[in-house]
């Protein structure tokens, strides 16, 4: 079936990755590049979570009614990708904050956010 939950999520994740990559490579403004990087990040997270998803199953949380300790292996999905993405989002925040502070420092030095004004390492 083409229009299933996981196919839509996979397509959205891949498109987000591509748009983020394109934005990071073509934008001239440093802050816009960082925005594109955060879009890329979201796309990767959606992709990883989708790989752990199984249709018709529910979250791996034992509530005593629908999911119990006995049947959890039959009704719940894979917890490992969720745990990985949980930490990846927090790391992504830290990295974004670091990139933004670098951008601020660069702007303080040269008063410009245009990447073409920074040619020190160009050869």
């Amino acid at each position: 079936m083409l229009l299933s939950i996981e196919n839509i999520a996979l397509a959205s994740g891949i498109l987000l990755i591509l748009i983020g990559l394109l934005g990071a490579l073509t934008n001239k403004n440093i802050i816009r590049m960082i925005v594109a990087f955060s879009i890329f990040d979201t796309g990767v997270n959606i992709l990883i979570v989708t790989f752990g998803y199984m249709p018709g199953r529910t979250a791996p949380i034992i509530d005593g009614a629908k999911v119990t300790a006995q049947n959890i292996a039959q009704v719940a999905i894979d917890p490992v990708p969720q745990a990985l993405v949980l930490t990846a989002i927090v790391i992504g925040f830290g990295v974004t904050a670091l990139m933004l502070v670098f951008a601020l420092k660069m702007h303080e030095k040269r008063k410009s956010l245009d990447i073409n004004d920074y040619t020190d390492l160009k050869w």
């Binding site: 939950i5 996981e6 999520a9 959205s12 955060s38 979201t42 997270n45 959606i46 979570v49 989708t50 752990g52 998803y53 199953r57 529910t58 979250a59 949380i61 999905i77 969720q82 993405v85 949980l86 989002i89 927090v90 992504g92 925040f93």
Partner: peptide, 19 residues
């Protein structure tokens, strides 16, 4: 919302709060 439909409420909470 994607994460919520994909049965991972933990990730959905983190993304909404942080992202």
């Amino acid at each position: 919302i994607f994460f919520l439909v994909l049965a991972s409420p933990d990730v959905a909470m983190t993304e909404a709060a942080i992202g």
